[in-house]
């Protein structure tokens, strides 16, 4: 039987040693292969803990009370070594300075590959193709401190992508970037997902950047999943949308108009959708 899901949480709960309360409570969740999934929720709701549980930082680095199971590409996280998981899932941190540390970007990219025992020929190929893919060939010999925030973010991504993970986890990857650079970054990883097949889990506060391309929007609140569905469904029909979630302006407008008995034929996520819908209604002709 072919397994559809690549990440699976089964009755999963976790409490950090230092805390009295469980930060994640009885999570049941399946993420399918090659999906792009957005994880949202107020600060302190357990988003980072959920991400750490996928790559095995929990329970292997952060101790605590662990209940249930997390299965990543058929490996039970609790039963395998963190290095086995590293081959499956790559993690790009919120702050790229926590991630890139070698004296040149090229060296930084091969660092992970060397640890996985990759041959020199393959390493060379991988580095070249990643640099050209992200259009950062000119950064190869630069030191991390010579890079702008946007370049650092791409360099951190390059180091992870070189290992060709099946799963890519991005924790607020665009928080330091200006709007255009942020969109470029999101488009690059999404194109790559389509080209080589990759599952992406992303924590992103600027939902307007990602709702148009995501398969699912998961909302966490107080350690529980309160929504898990197609972003259009969640943004437009959910009664659970807590005020802390930054719903894109256009979606809020749609909800407002729909509430005042304005008929829409389609669900609207982007300005383009709204314009199409208005034109169909011969708006302002």
């Amino acid at each position: 039987m072919k397994e559809k899901s690549i990440i699976k949480f089964e009755n999963f709960s976790f409490r950090y040693d230092s805390a009295n309360e469980f930060i994640l409570k009885n999570i049941n969740l399946e993420i399918n292969k090659n999906e792009l999934v957005i994880l949202a929720g107020p600060t302190g709701c357990g988003k980072s803990t959920l991400l750490r549980s996928i790559i095995g930082l929990i329970p292997h680095m952060h101790g605590g009370e662990y209940k249930g199971r997390v299965i990543v590409d058929q490996l039970v996280v609790n039963d395998v070594k963190i290095t086995d998981l590293a081959k499956k899932a790559g993690f790009v941190f919120q702050n790229p300075e926590n991630q890139i540390f070698m004296f040149s970007i090229e060296r930084d990219i091969v660092f992970g590959l060397e640890n996985l025992g990759t041959s020199r020929t393959i390493m060379k190929e991988r580095v070249d193709s990643i640099l050209s893919l992200l259009k950062i060939e000119h950064l190869a010999t630069k030191a991390p401190h010579e890079l702008s925030d946007g370049e650092k973010q791409k360099a951190a991504l390059a180091g992870i992508l070189a290992m060709q993970p099946k799963i890519l986890i991005l924790d607020e990857p665009t928080s330091l970037l200006d709007p255009k650079t942020a969109i470029d970054f999101i488009n690059i990883v999404n194109d790559l997902r389509k080209k080589i097949g990759m599952t992406i889990v992303i924590v992103e506060h600027r939902l307007d950047l990602v709702v148009g391309i995501a398969d699912k929007l998961i909302i966490l609140s107080n350690g529980k999943i309160i929504e898990n569905n197609n972003p259009k469904q969640v943004l437009h029909y959910s009664n659970q949308l807590i005020p802390e979630i930054g719903i894109p302006v256009i979606s809020r407008l749609y909800r407002n108009l729909a509430k005042s008995n304005y008929d829409f034929d389609n669900v609207i996520v982007t300005v383009k959708d709204m314009v199409k819908e208005m034109r169909r209604k011969k708006f302002n002709d």
Partner: peptide, 12 residues
């Protein structure tokens, strides 16, 4: 959003 909703309803 409130201003936008009002304007769209008015124009339409």
């Amino acid at each position: 959003i409130t201003e936008a909703t009002d304007a769209i309803r008015r124009i339409n």
